[in-house]
Structures are given as C-alpha cells and as structure tokens.
C-alpha cells in the first residue's frame, strides 16, 4: 500500500469530528473538508446527509442561493467549514483584507456566508492549510465573523476545531481560546509555537500525534471518496489519489 499523505491524515482527522451528525455542508473550494464529509457519510451507513457547494451530485438544494442559509438558521445543518486569510487566537476569522479596510494592503474575495453561518452552525470546523505567523495571528485585521459572542447574542453555533497542515487545535469555549490537541506526524510542538502568531493552551501531559488512518479507512478514502470528490475537484483527486484526468 502506498504511503499515507498529509491530505489523508487531515481527511480522517476532520471526519472523526463529524461522526453521528445528520447534515454536514461544505462550501466552495474545499476539497479536503469535502472528502472528509464524504468519508463520514460512508461510515454513517446512510444516516448522514452531505451537501457540497459546486457539486452536481451532492447538492440537493432547490430553492436558490438562500436555502442553505435558511437551513442553517433553522438548525438543520450540524457542521460547516470556514477558512480565513487570517484566523486569530480568539477564533475570529478574516476573509476580507489586511491593513486598513478603506485602502488595504491585501484584499481577498470577501466574507461569503461566514458572518452568519459561524453564528448558527453548531460545529464550525476552521481549516487553514498554511500554518504560519502570517495566517494564524494574534488579532485579525478585519472580523468577518467573531469566534465568540457576548452572552445575550443568539449564538447556537461557533468554532469546534481548527485544523492546519501542522496540527489540530480544539476550542475551549469557556476560556475562549484554542488548545493544541494533536500534532501531525513529522511536526513538533516547538515548531507549532514558532509558527503560530497567537497564544494557545497545551493539553496535560504530552501532546499526542494526529492519528494516521488505518488500512480500512484508507481503502474507503482512496476508493469511493476519491471517486466522488473527483466529480467536483478533478485536479485535487488526480494530485492526491492519482485518479481521473486533470484536464
């Protein structure tokens, strides 16, 4: 069997956090979360729905662009994924700009649905595959969606985990901060400290290594999941799983 790649470790780590959910939604440009959702659905034996924006086969919405938000607002969506140009130690997400808002140094596409979904979806999994002090910052330059809210703000949803290319953070809702949960194989806690712009908590004892998917899981990832994800992300499927054709 060929060696396990980082993408497969991330897919497994995310899928573990989706176990037992009824409906997992995945936004645009998210091949790894998409694959993780499909893995979790496969394990659920038909008990989980997955909707993937940009997919023809895995997008059941029929009432226009608003429906996914209405579904989330009613509590019919259990998990969603958000990324950010910057994510800070208070789990604030920035999808807008770096520097002054009126005349920014860098401008990104925009907040999309984050300013709403982060508030109403119970398990929002943050993912950022560039784990550097540039992306994981002490304080974001623009809050597209705040990590935490005052007690009187309607907030059934919020951050659940932050997954990067180096490690997995859990969210401490009481202390309103991240706690290092596991470090991916080949990475170290010292390196995480060096590459993270915000302060985070450590678990008691040694920090575990992120689990490598077992052969049964790899079989599912490289089989049915790879084949389904290639419909939406052919280039990703070709690069990671060597299936399909990039063209």
């Amino acid at each position: 069997m060929k060696d396990v790649v980082l993408e497969e470790i991330l897919i497994e780590a995310i899928a573990e956090n989706l176990d037992g959910l009824r409906h997992v939604a995945v936004g645009a440009s998210s091949p790894i979360p998409g694959a993780a959702a499909l893995l979790a659905r496969s394990r659920s034996k038909g008990k989980m729905r997955v909707s993937i924006l940009g997919s023809e086969d895995n997008n059941f919405f029929s009432d226009g662009g608003k429906e996914i938000f209405d579904v989330a607002g009613q509590g019919r969506m259990d998990a969603f994924f958000l990324s950010g140009a910057q994510i800070d130690g208070k789990a604030n997400v920035n999808l807008v700009s770096v520097g002054d808002y009126e005349q920014p140094k860098a401008r990104f596409p925009g907040s999309f649905g984050s300013g709403y979904l982060y508030f109403v979806v119970p398990r929002v999994i943050l993912f950022r595959l560039e784990h550097t002090p540039r992306t994981l910052v002490e304080k974001v330059d623009f809050i597209s969606a705040p990590g935490f809210s005052d007690d009187n703000v309607y907030r059934p949803g919020g951050p659940h985990k932050l997954i990067t290319d180096r490690c997995l953070f859990a969210v401490d809702k009481e202390r309103k901060c991240f706690r290092l949960e596991s470090v991916h194989p080949g990475h170290t806690v010292d390196e995480i400290h060096e590459q993270t712009g915000f302060k985070f908590d450590l678990p008691e004892g040694t920090v575990p290594e992120t689990r490598i998917p077992n052969s049964e899981t790899l079989h599912v990832i490289r089989g049915e999941v790879a084949s389904e994800i290639s419909e939406i992300y052919p280039a990703f499927a070709a690069r990671v799983f060597g299936i399909g054709n990039e063209s």
Binding site: G73, V96, Y101, S111, G115, Y116, L117, Y118, F119, V120, F142, I143, S144, A145, P146, S149, D150, V153, Y154
Partner: peptide, 12 residues
C-alpha cells in the same frame, strides 16, 4: 437577520 453582531461587516 441573525448573525453579524460583533463583526466588522456590520461595523462598516
């Protein structure tokens, strides 16, 4: 609309 409170989207 729910959401938005505490964001810079709303602030601007």
């Amino acid at each position: 609309l729910r959401g938005l409170i505490g964001s810079d989207i709303l602030a601007h």
